[in-house]
Simulated assay, not measured.
Amino acid sequence: MADIFQEAGLPLWLRPYEVLVTSSYTALIETIPDTASLHSIKSRFPSITSLRDFFVAKYQENSPSFKIAQRNFVESMAGYSILCYLLQVKDRHNGNLLMDEEGHIIHIDFGFMLSNSPGSVNFESAPFKLTRELLEVMDSDAEGVPSEFFDYFKVLCIQGFLTCRKHAERIILLVEMLLDSGFPCFKGGPRTIQNLRKRFHLSLTEEVLTVVSDGLKQQCVSLVLSLISSSLDAWRTRQYDYYQRVLNGIW
């Protein structure tokens, strides 16, 4: 997906990292330098009660560096939101979300995706994580009040989805090749691939696309906006964060 965004000239930002497999159960995972999890940031600075407070303290509100960090945040949020929706990445608590020095969000730990979830219960039913504190960095709130950066986020999500949709078969093939690997994320069997394909909404043929491309694009825009609306400070997402806070002390 990072390659797809780059090929299309889109500013959606992802941080791929290398994994060197050493056995069926072990691997060496590349370190991502100059980052800290959202949980560790809050633990390190007790006076900071929200991610917005951290941005204000680190980048100085209304300064050029603050605006650059916000833009970096939005571009990475959009990239990972589309990735998390299409691949159904779960276990998105604040210990699995990193922040780099430039303000980018980076997701790690992809042990739950496609068809498996923590505790075998799909508690994180929202398309992707879009909690109040993430929205506040975009000058929005839990209600999704319009702002320059939140509107930019919406535009990027739409562009990212339309672009990934053009390369759906390329993505689906990579996933399908691993269907018989025995990985836990394929516990759903062939339905895992079927559901992945459904999330791309590929109901129209190429012939139809050339005739009604504008209408199709409008349908995709409506779809992505509905995904964002469904994710806005979703109750089940907040409850999963609360569960992690109580059980594992992850803030």
Rank of each mutant, 00 (worst) to 15 (best):
E102N: 15
E102S: 15
G103Y: 13
G103E: 07
G103D: 05
G103M: 08
H104M: 08
H104G: 11
I105K: 06
I106N: 05
H107P: 04
H107Y: 11
H107S: 08
I108W: 08
I108N: 05
I108R: 02
I108C: 05
I108S: 05
I108Y: 06
D109V: 08
D109F: 13
D109N: 11
D109I: 12
F110V: 09
F110P: 01
G111Y: 13
G111V: 11
G111L: 09
F112T: 05
F112V: 03
M113P: 00
M113R: 09
M113Q: 10
L114W: 06
S115I: 08
N116Y: 04
S117C: 12
S117Q: 07
S117M: 05
S117L: 00
S117T: 12
P118Y: 15
P118C: 15
P118K: 14
G119Q: 07
G119R: 10
G119M: 08
G119A: 14
S120C: 09
S120P: 00
S120F: 15
S120E: 08
S120A: 11
V121D: 05
V121A: 12
V121K: 12
N122Q: 11
N122T: 02
N122W: 04
N122F: 12
N122S: 08
N122G: 05
N122V: 05
F123C: 08
F123G: 03
F123Q: 08
E124V: 03
E124A: 06
E124Y: 06
E124C: 04
E124P: 02
S125R: 10
S125E: 05
A126R: 02
A126N: 03
A126K: 01
P127F: 00
F128C: 02
K129D: 05
K129F: 03
K129T: 14
L130M: 07
L130P: 00
L130I: 00
T131M: 06
T131C: 06
T131E: 10
T131H: 03
T131D: 12
R132G: 01
E133G: 00
E133L: 00
E133V: 01
E133R: 00
E133T: 04
L134P: 00
L134A: 04
